[in-house]
């Protein structure tokens, strides 16, 4: 096998890992703090991409400034949308079993898909390619687009920011404590419901950031959130549910393995991720970085 190809394919895997990490870190963060598995998390990714299209293509007609603006404006918007969902709908299911949360958020997927279709139309839409102004580097017969390098950098920076936030800031520490035991935190005088909104805001912001990051590479279409959410499950299960470092590890594993599978064993593409996921669950059910499983009921 050509070592250059292996290298470049690993790099491709890392690009995909970064996007997966942005989305799945949000998913795992919400799960870790609130024990809510938000199936509609992928819909926020989709909304992020579509809002990005609106800013980049429709408002700023593909200029570099449009990209900058989209990266600054879109994630907070999806964050607010997520927070509104928590306040308006998901909050009311905390007393129920998780099947109700899964179902509620599954309903939201259907609603978001059709709403996006109503607003932006059923046709797939393409972002203008940011590499048109960013360019790329030659690497033998291959070319490494600058945007891909920026995406990998973004993924790792977000990880560092999250790590600093949870270990250095007060709010971050309280959120981590709430993840451990929300009742004790509440007894200490912290408004847990606020923590819940914050974490939904942050998680959804990350998903929207994933959407606006991935959008310029891909094509936006209604229903684009379904694939990423299934892969994100795999990521957080492999890494350990609720663990941000776990999401990083899981994203790296899923992204790189999938890329290498396509490159060298294409028959395995669809199956490989789920095989890894099932194996991890069977061998170490709590995932690579997860806390021990506990029964709540």
């Amino acid at each position: 096998m050509d070592p250059g190809l292996i290298l470049v394919q690993t790099f491709n895997g890392l690009v995909y890992s970064s996007i997966l990490f942005l989305v799945s870190s949000g998913l795992t963060l919400i799960y870790g703090i609130m024990r809510v598995l938000n199936l509609a998390h992928g819909s926020l990714y989709m909304v992020g991409a579509y809002l990005g299209i609106t800013v980049v293509l429709y408002l700023m007609s593909g200029t570099p400034l449009g990209y900058l603006l989209a990266f600054l404006a879109v994630p907070p918007l999806t964050g607010l949308l997520g927070a509104a969902l928590e306040r308006g709908l998901i909050r009311r299911t905390y007393e129920m079993g998780e099947e109700y949360q899964l179902l509620l958020t599954f309903g939201l997927i259907l609603i978001f898909d059709d709403l996006v279709k109503m607003i932006w139309g059923p046709a797939y839409i393409n972002f203008p390619d940011p590499n048109a102004f960013l360019g790329g580097f030659r690497f033998g017969e291959y070319k490494i687009p600058v945007y891909h390098i920026l995406l990998i950098a973004l993924g790792f920076s977000v990880f560092l920011v999250l790590w600093a936030f949870f270990s250095k800031t007060f709010t971050g520490k309280v959120m981590r404590a709430a993840a451990q035991d929300s009742e004790v935190v509440e007894a200490m005088g912290v408004d847990v419901s606020k923590i819940f909104v914050y974490s939904f805001f942050l998680g959804s912001l990350l998903s929207g950031l994933g959407g606006i990051s991935a959008g310029p590479l891909y094509t936006a279409s209604p229903g684009m959130g379904t694939d990423i959410i299934v892969y994100s499950f795999a990521v957080i299960v492999i890494g350990g549910m609720g663990s941000v470092p776990g999401a990083l590890a899981g994203s790296l594993i899923v992204g790189v393995f999938r890329s290498l599978a396509i490159a060298f064993y294409p028959q395995m593409e669809i199956v490989v991720v789920f095989v890894i996921m099932a194996l991890v669950l069977l061998v170490k059910p709590t995932g690579l970085f997860g806390a021990p499983e506990f029964e709540r009921r």
């Binding site: 050509d2 250059g4 190809l5 470049v8 394919q9 491709n12 895997g13 690009v15 995909y16 017969e141 291959y142 891909h148 991935a214 590479l217 891909y218 094509t219 684009m224 694939d227 890329s259 396509i262 490159a263 294409p266 593409e269 669809i270």
Partner: peptide, 22 residues
Amino acid sequence: PMYSKLGTEDFSTYIDKMLSYG
């Protein structure tokens, strides 16, 4: 011949494989 899942988002892997073939 290479085949990608319908609705594939990331073709980088396929493209680089083509480039290695030239």
